[in-house]
Design a binder for these strands. Structure first.
Lengths: 115, 115
DNA sequence: GTATTATATAAGCACTCACTTATATAATCA
DNA sequence: TGATTATATAAGTGAGTGCTTATATAATAC
């Protein structure tokens, strides 16, 4: 058994505040299943592109997610190397899996190609 | 192995928003160690009584904490019967133990009697 | 009864937040 | 080259948040 990496109350509360928004919490849950680009998140969450971009930027600023550029697209995923990842992971464990919503996107032919 | 009780994204984000305040997160961590009354939390956190009362009221409104009246005092503790307790517990696990701060209060003779 | 102690609650205010619209940047394609 | 697509960013706005001060409620002590 390894000891759990501790996060101080200041950092912890800031992380929880970031995750304490339904849109961002959904994004994190989605990205826990698979990486997505902004336009995919726009399609899934039915929200404006700037709004999604701003949410993702906040998650990125706290190192919760990382990006990977591929052509025009920037794919985001949960940063498993982050110090806060263990906490993020143990939160998402209590939330319903979002894999289905990505699969639905795939079935509709809206995956990767971004429409 | 038992299945984890799931919390939907709406409830989950609301819970995290509540925990995403440093004062409230500290209170929850403290109450995870032991029950406290408002005046004890005032002493530990060095904040005004109305401010602490308002924070505790928010935690109570989401069923994160419960109260137990004893004379003039109302003792608060984490509600282990709450549906969200498993999530609360797994968050606090990642945060530093706050038992010491209660013990310090005890040593200073400021425990229970509320000054 | 009145005074004291503990707590809750109400109103006001500065600040923050999540959205909007508009625009800028960047990569691809014709 | 210019047009299109994907994303970021800036400015503005209305709603929400956390504190303050002031007051109300409730239990105890005298």
């Amino acid at each position: 058994m390894t000891t759990l990496p501790m996060i101080d109350l200041d950092q912890g509360s800031k992380l929880l505040k970031l995750m304490g928004d339904k849109t961002r919490l959904t994004i994190v849950s989605l990205l826990m299943s698979d990486e997505c680009c902004v336009c995919e998140l726009v399609e899934i969450l039915k929200m404006s592109q700037p709004s999604i971009s701003q949410h993702v930027a906040k998650l990125k600023s706290f190192n919760i997610v990382t990006e990977r550029r591929q052509g025009q697209w920037i794919f985001y995923r949960v940063n498993k190397d982050s110090e806060v990842f263990p906490l993020v992971e143990s939160i998402v464990k209590h939330l319903p899996d979002q894999k289905e919503r990505i699969q639905t996107l795939e079935i509709k032919g809206l995956r990767v190609c971004c429409n």
